[in-house]
Design a protein around this nucleic acid. Sequence first.
DNA 1: ATGTAGACTTTGGTCGACC
DNA 2: GGGTCGACCAAAGTCTACA
Lengths: 76, 76
Amino acid sequence: MNVEQAFGTVIKKYRLELSMSQEKLAFESGLDRTYISLLERGKRRPTINTLFFISQVLGIPPHHIIIDIEKLIQKK
Amino acid sequence: MNVEQAFGTVIKKYRLELSMSQEKLAFESGLDRTYISLLERGKRRPTINTLFFISQVLGIPPHHIIIDIEKLIQKK
DNA sequence: ATGTAGACTTTGGTCGACC
DNA sequence: GGGTCGACCAAAGTCTACA
């Protein structure tokens, strides 16, 4: 599993835990809804700024998301 | 202080601790030397993939760099 | 509420050269 | 060894629309 796929998996997991829609996550983070869709499916590589925007809305510290990514790509 | 400035500050700190040149960091991480220069001066926003490449070469876990960034932008 | 597609703008990232 | 500039190409991110 690569970094962008892991990122998508992780933010989707946290988004669903909050029962939040892609639409709301997009709006609150100032990004486009279709872009959130692309991110969750591992089709885009976010900048670290985008990471910070999204994690802020999810209420998760950015480094926590990175730790999850590290674990996912470790597992292959 | 913004995210990209913090990123530049942090990777420069770790690079200097290793007494590594920008040239070597660039080569080992598969990036361009001038781009490392831009990053350290906060002129570019790296993707998370770039974060992983660079942190690998620096021997620092990616989330550790993110923690440092969080602290720096907190302090203003 | 989400996936996809196409056209679009902006910025990440490369490369050669010079100081 | 590092900053900068200009030109360039690839990819981030937007927007409209339809299923």
